[in-house]
Design a protein around this nucleic acid. Structure first.
Lengths: 222, 222
DNA sequence: TTGCATTTCAAACGCATGTATGAAACTATG
DNA sequence: CATAGTTTCATACATGCGTTTGAAATGCAA
């Protein structure tokens, strides 16, 4: 007999419905019907619809962030305080990609909910995402320790690109799948992570500043 | 004296309001008030709210696609039918980035509208985006001509990552700006394009298949 | 001008939504 | 058992939305 049965029934029904059908066309009435509770229960337990959504998103975000930080800490422990570049990147993008991609029938409701949250940007979630930066700072700090000679700018761009590739692959996996006519295997989660990590590691470690400035000159000469 | 004054007044008012405040909280009543026309005019001229949004988005998309294809054609003309990898990538990401980033006060309403369209995913726009693949196919074809020895999979992933970096930089420019505490200059549009092109060109041309399979073995041995 | 088609307008419709209310049912403590 | 606190419930409220209506205004050809 679970404490607060109603509350958790609402949470799980809401998560499932939002994951399946998106935020736009799921109403409180849909949720309470699925949860088999009274309409007023949502406002009683959560205050408002937005606070319900926020609670769902915060819970899942915290879980992902915890996973990321665990991987990061482990990588830094192995390297004696200075983690490998690829390990940092893997800690950053791995948990999210693993959670959100893979065979359809294996994707958890939680993961599908997070995909929705990233596709349909809804006010309560946007507000929370804005506070995500403190968490990211831990990764830029780790990267700074790992590549002390690299310029700050390059570090940020490298991490940003890693997140961009991972995130956009999750958002747009369907488009890539159609575009490539199935050539790109979106179910090979670890392969995808490898690709993202490899490309962003190259971006971080590979290019010499000389090339960049040469390009700059070429452009300005135009 | 423009023909169909009402129609175009609605279009430009709607574009400006959507650009400024997002799709979520701009109503038809807001639009007709800004355009100084009657409420019923929207349905008379466009049929529905969704069709109005669709028309706005289609117009702007076509313009961007045209720009992209012009750059691509030019690049292929220079190379005698076989464009340079970097030129293809530049044609793909350049127009969008140029349109959507840069100093705030220089960004056109059209560009800000397209940013909104990419951040807040709304049904009529989603439907249109799904037909975008035919356009992308021209770029994968060009890339295939440019890198005939490269595997199909790598080509698609490379192009996808290029779009991912460009797109996500536009979407999340604010986050990167805060995260890097202003270190990353989001106003340096051409510099951003250079970075995106450089990284994705490296991804396309750089890594040898040997490394990838080595990684695969390492992972499976784990 | 007459007559017809197009466009504008004020007003209302219908509906779905999130939220509030107040009574009833339940739970647990003394 | 009694009673105070919590939770559930049916129901109603208020509002804002996109859309429709039908009449008035306007433009334009004959």
């Amino acid at each position: 007999m679970p404490t607060d049965h109603t509350r958790s029934a609402i949470l799980s029904a809401a998560e499932r419905l939002y994951a399946d059908r998106g935020f736009a066309d799921v109403t409180l009435r849909d949720i309470v019907a699925a949860a088999d509770v009274n309409l007023a229960a949502v406002n009683y337990h959560f205050g408002s619809k937005d606070e319900l959504i926020a609670e769902l998103f915060v819970t899942r975000s915290l879980a992902t962030n915890r996973e990321r930080l665990n991987e990061l800490k482990e990588a830094e422990a192995v390297g004696g305080g200075r983690a490998d570049v690829e390990a940092i990147l893997r800690a950053l993008v791995g948990p999210t990609v693993r959670g959100c991609l893979g065979p359809n029938n294996e994707r958890s409701t939680a993961a599908r909910f997070m995909i929705r949250a990233s596709i349909e940007s809804v006010p309560p979630i946007r507000r929370i995402k804005n506070r995500e930066i403190d968490h990211l700072r831990k990764f830029s700090a780790a990267m700074r320790r790992s590549l002390p000679d690299r310029s700050e700018v390059d570090l940020y761009w490298g991490l940003h690109f890693a997140l961009a590739m991972a995130h956009q692959t999750i958002r747009d996996s369907e488009r890539l799948s159609k575009w490539s006519e199935g050539t790109c295997d979106l179910n090979d989660v670890e392969g995808i992570i490898d690709r993202v990590v490899a490309v962003s590691a190259m971006a971080l470690a590979g290019s010499e500043p000389a090339k960049a400035s040469a390009k700059l000159v070429a452009r300005e000469a135009r």
